[in-house]
Design a binder for these strands. Structure first.
Lengths: 202, 202
DNA sequence: GCCTGCATGTAAACGGTTACATGATTCG
DNA sequence: CGAATCATGTAACCGTTTACATGCAGGC
């Protein structure tokens, strides 16, 4: 219980520690790792990675891995201390934050825009999630086949499943919403007036 | 087509413009408005709101509304220029950004944590989404009854529906995941070694 | 008159992205 | 050799949250 206090939201820190717990990686590797394995739900930019690697090194959670170095790459490995830090973070409650959903903001104020605009957004939204579903299917196949022996595979399949449930649900919502707005007929934006009463009392 | 170029991600700006398009509000009102109506998907802090109101005023998109002032409140109303800005933003494509899902990060690296830890996270996750569903039902009832005549109501119902689809799907995922991890049995964290091969080639 | 809470506002820090600079390596 | 791309690293900026400072208004 003597762990140094942390700003409680240093998520890049733990993302990097977790990745290095899987195997030693360089900064470049790390970026590719997140893009490839968690691309839809997590990413890290160089501007985060390299400074963080330096900080983690200074702290002793991570160390340069001279053995694994090839060419100009500078791989790092996690230390025992780093593993303890990672485990402590894994045990700590998930920190919620309101994830801002821009398409909902545009939907909420859609009356003030050109009537067809939101239909365009819905179409793009659907295309995006159809593409994601295809990507998930591919990952799932790979995990089930090639990597079935890895001890993490059940966790990874569960993560992919999250994505699938999410995209399925949002596609259903999108279809429903298209129908809802169509039957009602798009109405023109009211350019002014009409204040008061969002039912926003108390 | 002569609109001044914007940093393309000034979302607080448009959130505020949109809210003021509904009716004049003060900074305090705005914060309450977002918390009440879009709390699960959008929020704004004072540190954003007050400076933004000042900037929007300087720009002529918003103006102090002396008439509506009561007590110490300083309400603002949107101008015609502000409405045009809002409409332009509504017409522009939705900007995607990778929303970081912390629970998935913890899931992905769950092998390195205490085995029961993730089960706790799932339980909290489920409680959260059950609570949200109840909140959505309440909002839906209110919208359908009291505000059925507002022209925006179809849009707002669609936004609530997004939340319901989302929480339903994530609850289903959570149940599935609990089952998946249970049948498989939790395995102890491997404190070291076992590098190589995340299937992360190419 | 005093307390509570309403309301405006700001400063500082933080987490993150972007864009750029730089050099090494590989391959045609 | 020269070009492309691999790889490290940094600086500047941006959006956002947090915490705080301030003081007015209304009710007891």
């Amino acid at each position: 219980m003597n762990r140094p206090a942390r700003p409680a939201l240093n998520r890049s820190r733990y993302a990097i520690l977790g990745a290095l717990a899987l195997r030693p990686m360089s900064g470049y590797d790390l970026r590719a790792f997140f893009a490839r394995n968690l691309g839809f739900f997590w990413n890290e930019s160089y501007g985060q990675i390299y400074p963080m690697l330096r900080a983690l090194t200074a702290e002793g959670a991570v160390a340069p891995d001279a053995d694994a170095a090839t060419g100009r790459r500078k791989p790092y490995r996690i230390t025992e201390y780093g593993r303890a830090e990672l485990a402590a973070w894994l045990a700590a409650p998930v920190v919620h934050e309101v994830s801002r959903v821009e398409i909902l903001l545009k939907l909420f104020f859609a009356r003030f825009g050109e009537p067809s605009a939101f239909a365009r957004h819905l179409a793009a939204f659907e295309a995006e999630h159809v593409a994601r579903l295809a990507a998930y299917a591919a990952v799932e196949a790979r995990l089930a086949d090639e990597l079935a022996d890895r001890p993490d595979v059940a966790y990874w399949l569960a993560a992919v499943s999250y994505g699938r449930h999410l995209s399925d649900a949002l596609l259903a919502w999108s279809a429903e919403t298209r129908a809802r707005l169509a039957t009602r007929g798009a109405f023109p934006p009211t350019p002014d007036g009409d204040a008061e009463a969002t039912g926003d009392r108390s």
